[in-house]
Simulated scan of single mutants.
Amino acid sequence: MINKIASLFLLFLLIISCNDTPLVASEISFTHKDLASCNTVECPEIFVNYPKFSGEVEVTKAINASVEQFIIESLYLDDPEQKPTAKNIQEAAQQFIDMYRMHNAEFPDLAIDYYSEIEIEESFRSEEIISIELYQEKYTGGAHGYRSLSYGNFSIKTGQKIPANKLFKDLNIFTKFAETYFRSQHNIQENKEINSTGFWFDDNKFYLPESIGFNKKSFVLHYNQYEIASYAEGPIEVEIPLKDVAQYLNVSLKK
Rank of each mutant, 00 (worst) to 15 (best):
residue 85 T to S: 15
residue 4 K to S: 13
residue 139 Y to P: 00
residue 202 D to M: 10
residue 223 Y to I: 07
residue 95 Q to C: 03
residue 162 I to N: 06
residue 220 V to S: 05
residue 123 S to W: 04
residue 145 G to E: 01
residue 65 A to G: 05
residue 42 E to L: 07
residue 164 A to C: 00
residue 50 Y to R: 06
residue 168 F to N: 00
residue 152 G to V: 10
residue 214 F to Q: 00
residue 88 N to Q: 08
residue 213 G to M: 07
residue 167 L to W: 03
residue 170 D to I: 01
residue 107 F to R: 15
residue 158 T to D: 13
residue 106 E to A: 13
residue 235 P to M: 10
residue 106 E to Q: 13
residue 141 G to L: 01
residue 34 D to Q: 11
residue 175 T to Q: 15
residue 224 N to W: 11
residue 125 R to Q: 15
residue 234 G to R: 04
residue 36 A to Y: 07
residue 73 E to I: 03
residue 21 T to W: 04
residue 55 G to I: 12
residue 9 F to H: 12
residue 100 Y to P: 05
residue 114 Y to G: 06
residue 141 G to H: 10
residue 2 I to P: 06
residue 130 I to R: 04
residue 217 K to Y: 07
residue 216 K to C: 05
residue 204 N to I: 12
residue 213 G to R: 11
residue 173 I to S: 03
residue 219 F to P: 08
residue 8 L to F: 12
residue 42 E to C: 08
residue 235 P to W: 06
residue 117 E to S: 02
residue 187 N to V: 01
residue 91 E to I: 05
residue 113 D to M: 09
residue 62 A to I: 08
residue 46 I to W: 00
residue 255 K to L: 10
residue 144 H to D: 10
residue 167 L to S: 13
residue 134 L to V: 01
residue 245 V to M: 02
residue 6 A to Y: 06
residue 54 S to I: 15
residue 112 I to G: 04
residue 232 A to V: 11
residue 123 S to F: 02
residue 68 E to K: 05
residue 106 E to R: 13
residue 46 I to K: 02
residue 36 A to T: 11
residue 191 N to R: 03
residue 74 S to N: 02
residue 63 I to H: 08
residue 30 F to V: 11
residue 168 F to Q: 09
residue 176 K to T: 03
residue 33 K to V: 12
residue 179 E to Q: 03
residue 184 S to L: 11
residue 157 K to W: 05
residue 164 A to K: 14
residue 79 D to K: 08
residue 4 K to E: 14
residue 176 K to W: 00
residue 167 L to M: 14
residue 162 I to H: 08
residue 203 D to P: 00
residue 171 L to F: 04
residue 58 E to H: 09
residue 214 F to I: 03
residue 66 S to Y: 10
residue 164 A to Y: 06
residue 204 N to Y: 11
residue 211 S to C: 02
residue 184 S to C: 01
residue 6 A to T: 09
residue 184 S to T: 11
residue 76 Y to H: 08
residue 155 S to T: 10
residue 190 E to K: 12
residue 20 D to K: 15
residue 164 A to G: 00
residue 42 E to D: 10
residue 119 E to I: 07
residue 55 G to M: 04
residue 114 Y to V: 04
residue 234 G to M: 02
residue 79 D to V: 00
residue 152 G to A: 09
residue 215 N to I: 05
residue 236 I to F: 04
residue 45 E to R: 07
residue 86 A to C: 11
residue 180 T to Y: 03
residue 90 Q to G: 13
residue 186 H to T: 08
residue 158 T to F: 12
residue 184 S to G: 02
residue 71 I to N: 11
residue 250 N to D: 09
residue 199 F to D: 06
residue 46 I to C: 01
residue 96 F to M: 05
residue 225 Q to K: 14
residue 232 A to S: 14
residue 232 A to G: 11
residue 93 A to Y: 09
residue 168 F to D: 12
residue 80 P to N: 09
residue 129 I to Q: 00
residue 171 L to V: 10
residue 45 E to P: 00
residue 91 E to S: 12
residue 165 N to Q: 13
residue 175 T to V: 02
residue 227 E to M: 09
residue 255 K to T: 11
residue 123 S to N: 05
residue 103 H to L: 12
residue 143 A to F: 12
residue 17 S to D: 04
residue 175 T to D: 06
residue 94 Q to G: 07
residue 121 E to G: 09
residue 203 D to E: 13
residue 122 E to W: 02
residue 107 F to V: 14
residue 135 Y to L: 00
residue 234 G to S: 09
residue 57 V to E: 12
residue 166 K to I: 01
residue 69 Q to S: 15
residue 87 K to Q: 15
residue 1 M to D: 12
residue 216 K to D: 14
residue 131 S to T: 05
residue 148 S to I: 02
residue 241 P to M: 07
